[in-house]
Design a protein around this nucleic acid. Structure first.
Lengths: 217, 217
DNA sequence: GTCTATATCGGGATAGAC
DNA sequence: GTCTATCCCGATATAGAC
């Protein structure tokens, strides 16, 4: 019993041990590969290559593909939902909040569409066949707060009467779908990547205007 | 040269030979499996099982997984784009067309969200790593026609001045995203499937109203 | 901690009998 | 056309040397 804590520096020093640099590189590589190929398409070999280490090391640190994936997914989904939550709970005027929600896309790096697509695809997979069930912690507080704010605006007469959750879904749809479905919309409209991106840039203001007209009293 | 056509009944009879019933069953099974699991997640064995035939038969009829997938994808994507094209080119008043575009979702069977998700996901995959390049024939005519109709409405003063393509993207976003991202939105809002579907039902009219307010002169 | 070598298995594909 | 048996590669995972 004397040596109870002595084998684990975490318990001795009261804070997490630093992940080794290698471990970090593998995690980052896993994120990139899983984001692009999904669970089924990803190869442990590709992750190892991207991290510049041997395949066996990946297993040394993370045991199995499933575990590594679960870890990666939670991190990606957590960050993503966190960002949305921040905007929803931001202490800004309502009109500004709408612009923020919509604009989130163009301001974000190229990774953002990948992230949204990834989360949707993998949640679908894990839902349709019950093994490997992924979960995402709901943004209950942020959602509630947004609904309350909308209801206040309606009472104040600055908004017409409408369902706040429906409005939220509309806002997310308008901002995320063009990113998530870029490949489909490009094909459908017959645009190349450049044209498509040109069309997306600077459309946040137009969209905000669009929404404001729709929800005016 | 005498027997040039005699080995292929298609050429003799001037119309395609009937696909055998087995072949049809395999194609249908492939559609179901690919739709749910995607290319990477699908197993030839699962397709065979669902069709009630041996795995070897699947290869007998369709040669390889790639070929069977390409065939399936083209059929699914073709049908999907065809439906959208039909609505875009429909000869109905503009306000009605907007309702049709938006409503497409709730009226469709459960397969619709799967289809949209499938196309988006697989187009992304084949775009991000160049092997297995999938293509979708653009809806140029339908798109052009829609743009013209919008521009006429603007000239007639029944619509405020706006970019027709942007409007089209908005309409598709509003109708498709809640279906495509159901798993994500459910998680985000903390709703179970029943609640979520309840929220979607009957929202077509509200959405059409929403859009009409936004585009009124 | 990091590598080499290897075990093991799943899954796509084909050969060949019927 | 349909099945059985089999090939063979690729991918996860582990054992063991350093």
């Amino acid at each position: 019993m004397v040596k109870l804590f002595s084998e684990d520096r975490r318990l001795l020093y009261m804070k997490p041990v630093e992940p080794t640099e290698t471990e970090q590189r593998i995690k980052e590589a896993a994120k990139q590969i899983f984001l692009r190929r999904g669970f089924d398409g990803a190869r442990m070999q590709d992750i190892a290559d991207l991290a510049g280490v041997d395949k066996a090391l990946v297993h040394y640190y993370f045991r199995s593909k499933d575990k590594l994936f679960a870890l990666t997914f939670d991190e990606i989904a957590g960050r993503f939902l966190g960002q949305i939550g921040q905007v929803l709970t931001a202490d800004v005027p309502f009109a500004e909040k709408i612009r923020l929600l919509i604009q989130q896309d163009t301001s974000m790096p190229t990774e953002y569409p990948l992230v949204a697509n990834f989360i949707i695809a993998e949640l679908n997979q894990s839902r349709s066949h019950s093994e490997r069930p992924l979960t995402v912690k709901p943004l209950r507080d942020a959602h509630t707060l947004f609904v309350q704010q909308v209801d206040r605006e309606i009472k104040a007469g600055t908004l017409r009467s409408l369902n706040a959750t429906q409005l939220l879904i509309v806002l997310i749809s308008l901002s995320l779908f063009p990113l998530v479905a870029q490949s489909l919309l490009q094909a459908l409209l017959g645009l190349d990547e450049e044209d498509y991106n040109a069309m997306l840039t600077g459309r946040a203001d137009d969209l905000a205007d669009f929404v404001n007209r729709a929800i005016a009293p």
